[in-house]
Design a protein around this nucleic acid. Sequence first.
DNA 1: ATTAAGGCATGAA
DNA 2: GTTCATGCCTTAA
Length: 105
Amino acid sequence: MQNEPSALKKFAPDVFEYLTTIPKGKVTTYGQIARDLFLSTPRLVGKILHQNPDSSQFPCHRVVFSDGRLAPGYAFGGAKVQEQKLRAEGVIFKKNKVDLSKCLF
DNA sequence: ATTAAGGCATGAA
DNA sequence: GTTCATGCCTTAA
Protein backbone atom coordinates (compact mmCIF):
# COMPACT_ATOMS: atom_id res chain seq x y z
CA MET A 1 0.00 0.00 0.00
CA GLN A 2 1.01 3.57 -0.28
CA ASN A 3 3.17 4.35 2.60
CA GLU A 4 3.23 7.98 3.54
CA PRO A 5 6.37 9.87 2.65
CA SER A 6 8.76 10.06 5.54
CA ALA A 7 8.85 13.28 7.47
CA LEU A 8 12.37 13.70 6.18
CA LYS A 9 11.28 13.75 2.55
CA LYS A 10 8.19 15.70 3.44
CA PHE A 11 10.14 18.50 5.08
CA ALA A 12 13.15 18.40 2.78
CA PRO A 13 11.88 21.14 0.39
CA ASP A 14 10.90 23.25 3.37
CA VAL A 15 14.36 23.00 4.85
CA PHE A 16 16.02 23.85 1.54
CA GLU A 17 13.72 26.81 1.16
CA TYR A 18 14.61 27.92 4.67
CA LEU A 19 18.27 27.94 3.67
CA THR A 20 17.52 30.40 0.88
CA THR A 21 15.91 32.73 3.39
CA ILE A 22 19.16 33.03 5.31
CA PRO A 23 20.82 36.34 4.40
CA LYS A 24 24.50 36.39 3.51
CA GLY A 25 26.79 36.65 6.47
CA LYS A 26 24.32 34.85 8.72
CA VAL A 27 24.09 31.32 10.02
CA THR A 28 21.42 29.17 11.53
CA THR A 29 21.31 26.08 13.69
CA TYR A 30 19.74 22.68 13.19
CA GLY A 31 17.51 23.20 16.19
CA GLN A 32 16.39 26.56 14.89
CA ILE A 33 15.24 25.10 11.60
CA ALA A 34 13.72 22.11 13.30
CA ARG A 35 11.56 24.26 15.54
CA ASP A 36 10.54 26.51 12.69
CA LEU A 37 9.51 23.59 10.53
CA PHE A 38 7.87 21.67 13.33
CA LEU A 39 10.45 18.93 13.24
CA SER A 40 10.56 16.99 16.46
CA THR A 41 14.26 16.36 16.34
CA PRO A 42 17.03 18.53 14.85
CA ARG A 43 18.72 15.39 13.63
CA LEU A 44 16.16 15.19 10.87
CA VAL A 45 17.35 18.56 9.62
CA GLY A 46 20.88 17.22 9.37
CA LYS A 47 19.71 14.22 7.41
CA ILE A 48 17.76 16.45 5.06
CA LEU A 49 20.81 18.64 4.53
CA HIS A 50 22.65 15.50 3.56
CA GLN A 51 20.16 15.12 0.77
CA ASN A 52 21.28 18.47 -0.55
CA PRO A 53 21.66 17.97 -4.33
CA ASP A 54 23.97 20.96 -4.71
CA SER A 55 25.99 22.82 -2.10
CA SER A 56 26.09 25.90 -4.33
CA GLN A 57 22.35 25.96 -4.53
CA PHE A 58 21.61 25.58 -0.85
CA PRO A 59 24.00 27.17 1.65
CA CYS A 60 24.16 24.11 3.87
CA HIS A 61 27.47 25.52 5.09
CA ARG A 62 25.46 28.22 6.85
CA VAL A 63 24.00 25.64 9.18
CA VAL A 64 25.94 24.98 12.38
CA PHE A 65 25.44 23.53 15.84
CA SER A 66 23.54 25.43 18.47
CA ASP A 67 26.89 25.78 20.24
CA GLY A 68 28.34 27.43 17.18
CA ARG A 69 30.52 24.45 16.36
CA LEU A 70 30.61 23.17 12.81
CA ALA A 71 29.06 19.87 11.84
CA PRO A 72 31.51 16.94 11.68
CA GLY A 73 30.07 15.54 8.50
CA TYR A 74 30.12 18.37 6.02
CA ALA A 75 30.16 16.44 2.76
CA PHE A 76 31.43 19.24 0.54
CA GLY A 77 35.09 19.61 1.39
CA GLY A 78 35.12 19.40 5.15
CA ALA A 79 34.49 21.58 8.17
CA LYS A 80 37.58 23.68 7.47
CA VAL A 81 36.30 24.53 4.03
CA GLN A 82 33.00 25.39 5.61
CA GLU A 83 34.71 27.78 7.97
CA GLN A 84 36.46 29.53 5.11
CA LYS A 85 33.20 29.84 3.22
CA LEU A 86 31.44 31.35 6.22
CA ARG A 87 34.31 33.78 6.80
CA ALA A 88 34.21 34.76 3.15
CA GLU A 89 30.51 35.51 3.51
CA GLY A 90 31.14 37.81 6.43
CA VAL A 91 30.40 35.46 9.30
CA ILE A 92 32.47 36.24 12.35
CA PHE A 93 34.45 33.33 13.73
CA LYS A 94 35.49 33.05 17.32
CA LYS A 95 38.57 30.84 17.27
CA ASN A 96 37.10 27.66 15.81
CA LYS A 97 33.51 28.46 16.57
CA VAL A 98 30.94 30.65 14.91
CA ASP A 99 29.84 33.80 16.64
CA LEU A 100 26.16 32.97 16.83
CA SER A 101 25.63 36.08 18.94
CA LYS A 102 26.19 38.19 15.84
CA CYS A 103 25.52 35.91 12.91
CA LEU A 104 22.63 33.79 14.11
CA PHE A 105 19.71 34.37 11.80
C1' DA B 1 35.06 34.19 31.97
C1' DT B 2 35.77 31.91 27.40
C1' DT B 3 37.15 28.40 24.16
C1' DA B 4 37.85 23.45 23.14
C1' DA B 5 36.83 18.57 23.30
C1' DG B 6 34.20 14.56 24.72
C1' DG B 7 30.26 12.08 26.48
C1' DC B 8 25.45 11.22 27.51
C1' DA B 9 20.44 11.73 26.32
C1' DT B 10 16.47 12.31 22.79
C1' DG B 11 13.75 11.17 18.77
C1' DA B 12 12.99 9.37 14.23
C1' DA B 13 13.96 6.20 10.27
C1' DG C 1 17.90 -2.95 17.95
C1' DT C 2 21.02 0.29 15.62
C1' DT C 3 22.39 4.55 13.56
C1' DC C 4 22.80 9.71 13.41
C1' DA C 5 25.58 16.54 9.53
C1' DT C 6 22.14 17.42 17.32
C1' DG C 7 21.83 19.41 21.86
C1' DC C 8 23.21 20.17 26.41
C1' DC C 9 26.34 19.17 30.24
C1' DT C 10 30.96 18.47 32.29
C1' DT C 11 35.88 18.80 32.40
C1' DA C 12 40.27 20.75 30.76
C1' DA C 13 43.40 24.54 29.33
